[in-house]
Design a protein around this nucleic acid. Sequence first.
DNA 1: AAAGTCTGCAACCGCTTTCTT
DNA 2: CAAGAAAGCGGTTGCAGACTT
Length: 303
Amino acid sequence: MGRSPCCDKTGLKKGPWTQEEDIKLTQYIRIHGPGNWKTLPKNAGLQRCGKSCRLRWTNYLRPDIKRGRFSFEEEETIIQLHSVLGNKWSAIAARLPGRTDNEIKNYWNTQIRKKLLQKGIDPVTHAPRLDLSDLSTILSSPQFNLANLLSLRTLVNPDVLRLVSLLASSSSNQEHQEMLLTNHINTMNQSPIQQTQDCYSMHLSPRSSQLLGKVNLIHENDGLYFSNHLVNFSDQTSQENMVPPFSIDNSVTLPSPQYPSQVSENWSFLRSDIENKIPSSQKFNFDSILSIPMSSPSHVNSS
DNA sequence: AAAGTCTGCAACCGCTTTCTT
DNA sequence: CAAGAAAGCGGTTGCAGACTT
């Protein structure tokens, strides 16, 4: 027993609406008002199914629809609401006068989603994506001097990179993101990183791999936190391309986040995650990290 | 200039929820 | 209260125009 169709589709038109059809629908609704979509097409002289008429009216012809580009404020509102409501487009649309759920959904899928990903934010959870494929986006910004990074022979602590990625992703300011990374890399260059017994291997996503040239990939669970996934990981298929294992260095220099309140939630989320996964001897001194003023980076040693 | 690829968006499809009888 | 109809909703598709090769 199949589902009954919303209407008898035989002889009904599909596809884009013509101006003539729009006029018929608009004039009919102007006189009779919307509603009873099943009988409307016939009464209005349209060869369309009622559902199609309703959609055309609610998404396009309604007089109170605001057309044109979304403003910055609208975009911010959508992001905020989406973080609370998820893909409840109609609920989001209800809070944005003049915008339809379809329009918001399209805008989300084509614009906002991309922007969030570029900032290293997971568009589904709105949490920072801490895998390095996102970091690669930051690294690939035209202003960022990749050559500096590639010339580094320093040991890179993956956890530090993720911390930087976190902070960078929490900022909507491109310059700030670059500064965070540059500060980090400068620090890595200057600090006498000591290799410890415990070594981490790090793999990068294909995108990062392309970018950085000589590193390979681990991509588990669509986003890596500071996790044991990374510990002693090795990829048998690409040993020759692997960078040497990274040392664990608990000395971290990071500037204060630009938006402390925004970042603090992320911190608490991450702290508990990290503290569960990383042995106590390798933990960061989070409080010290957060207390470092941006203008005067210094080293923090939690050991 | 032509062909191929990408992007944005209107419209559709099918499932769920709400309303009516 | 149940069943069927109507409306609502979100995911997906198809197409036109823009962009790239």
